[in-house]
Design a protein around this nucleic acid. Sequence first.
DNA 1: GACTTTCCTGGACAGTCGTCAAGACAGGGT
DNA 2: ACCCTGTCTTGACGACTGTCCAGGAAAGTC
Lengths: 202, 202
Amino acid sequence: MGPAVEGRAVDKVAQRRSELATAALETLAELGYARTGLRDIAARSEYSHGVLHYYFRDKVELITHCVREYKARCATRYDEAVATATTAEELVAGFLREQTATLTGEPQMHRLWYDLRNQSMFEPAFRADVAEIDLLLERMVGRVVSRYAELSGARPRVPPTVFYAVLDGLFQQALLRQLAGDPEAASSLREAVQEVLPRLVH
Amino acid sequence: MGPAVEGRAVDKVAQRRSELATAALETLAELGYARTGLRDIAARSEYSHGVLHYYFRDKVELITHCVREYKARCATRYDEAVATATTAEELVAGFLREQTATLTGEPQMHRLWYDLRNQSMFEPAFRADVAEIDLLLERMVGRVVSRYAELSGARPRVPPTVFYAVLDGLFQQALLRQLAGDPEAASSLREAVQEVLPRLVH
DNA sequence: GACTTTCCTGGACAGTCGTCAAGACAGGGT
DNA sequence: ACCCTGTCTTGACGACTGTCCAGGAAAGTC
């Protein structure tokens, strides 16, 4: 077993892990943490339930790996809008478009994020990863806000942490309404963001 | 079995239900929804696990009853501060005192609320009750804000729903930090509220 | 070809889950 | 004395849980 082969083997293993983590993410998003078993996850993949303990030590390690995969998707969501916008209005429009799209397009994935973040309030094993993602999301919001301030020639009036908490609260409320079937959830969110944002940076 | 006796019997039943619901609330707050079984709940009460199906049809009905009990505690939390404050600063001080007290004093109860609210994103059976409590909390925040505006001779700049979402986002972030052991969680929350509030009502 | 290593399956394990029903026990009514 | 009714306990049920393991399948090495 040479180093080159080992390198390829490691990649292969990493790929399987990622493959299984994706199946786990889909299952968790559909059923929620409390109702998801390892057999449900395996059923969604093309393998049997035993393989999960071949690639992951624990259920905790599996879910932790899932959460790490999840962060890669979220952290760059608004980066394009930040990069391409040339005016403040354009940036807000791009931000709202993207936010609305995720709210109506993949609400399951986001209720999973909130579910796992809540689990970390009970299960210390999740806290480190959740905190890491939370920081990533906070920085993402921070980039949007600071660029918005730059384009509109103003200054953020509250720290990035507060911005993140405020926008997260608004999004979570909208998500709850969206999943309850409220057709105006998205438009209410847009309106709220447009009202709040200029008052916190001007 | 006359009506008078029946009336007393109904009270007795209601009292037992309440008693068991209290034990359930304590257990849920400690373990979280995903890890709480009916036997855990019964162990915390002075009865055995079979009695739960004597007073409640389902696990769902039990937890629903819990949530209904929970709301009675929360909805009046800030009412005294609203009633006694004579200046805007006094009202904010009272609000922050109460908010800090609940954050550091009973964080378990609040992570349970967020847990159950998240469960309602997956389990439609919880949605109606969760929505009801959410409305109650929103109105409570609305009372604080409108009184604050009145005392400071200003106007709320965003609707009550937005206020609730914003303050809830800030509180949830603080709760996450509090439970992770951050000693500055409470003071950060106070600071954030004092920064945000005047910018949304002036 | 045989042999070794890696990968994956399927079943078994010890628990726990929600649910239910049979019986014990108490108290009042007749 | 008896039964009746409301309470509560206890044990059991099938289904499900995370975990582990014996062994088959497949792939790679000599």
